[in-house]
């Protein structure tokens, strides 16, 4: 199948919609964690399934222990989202919501589920709401570690060939950790987003 490649103009528009969603996520996280959240411009790329797995072996993620949360979404467009955290994120985030350094793994994972729920929701809703579309979410669940992410990415049951990869760097003041949001969209969803972006851009150009 020929991959659907968004034009540069549409990628710019999609990046901006994600950016708007991430602003909402930052405000929610800042309120919950009691700190200022520094945002960087989200990186966005459309790629195939195999390339996503390879990216986990490069850069800062290469030697990181990974904890991943998964959250599917449904509605106007359907897809899978995964949020990855590196090891320092567990204790850092748990500490910020009041768990002590001795907090149980299950408590730390619960915090990651909450954070992923906010960030993934804002990211996907940022796209959907701006395109006047509606999506709903399954509850976030723990996907597991690096090996589990690999297994997930290689499963044929994941109905997508292309992935919209959104790289979001969160920096909490005086603390930092790696986190990354992956949004996977099957071909029909990509097509629907492409069409909605056309309407959005045409509307602006007509004004």
């Amino acid at each position: 199948m020929t991959p659907l490649l968004l034009s540069e103009e549409k990628r710019d528009a999609l990046r901006e919609l994600v950016n708007i969603g991430m602003g909402t996520a930052a405000a929610a996280l800042a309120a919950a964690l009691g700190t200022f959240v520094e945002l960087t411009s989200p990186g966005l790329e459309v790629t195939d399934r195999g390339s996503v797995a390879k990216q986990l072996d490069t850069g800062a993620w290469r030697n990181s222990e990974i904890e991943a949360v998964r959250q599917p979404f449904f509605g106007a467009f359907t897809g899978e989202s995964v949020m990855l955290f590196d090891r320092p994120a567990h204790a850092e985030l748990a500490g910020m919501v009041g768990y002590g350094p001795e907090s149980a793994v299950v408590e730390q994972q619960e915090v990651l589920l909450d954070v992923a729920n906010v960030v993934i929701g804002a990211c996907v809703n940022g796209i959907a709401e701006s395109l006047a579309e509606l999506v709903s979410f399954a509850p976030p669940t723990r996907l597991g570690t690096r090996a589990d992410v690999r297994a997930f990415l290689s499963r044929e049951a994941v109905a997508w060939q292309q992935g919209l990869i959104v790289n979001v760097d969160f920096k909490l003041e005086a603390r930092s950790f790696l986190s990354r949001v992956l949004v996977f969209l099957p071909e029909p969803s990509m097509l629907r987003i492409d069409q909605a972006l056309s309407r959005l851009l045409d509307g602006l150009a007509a004004g």
Partner: peptide
């Protein structure tokens, strides 16, 4: 003009 509407921002 920003999406970042944190109080501190």
């Amino acid at each position: 003009v920003s999406a970042d509407v944190q109080t501190l921002a």
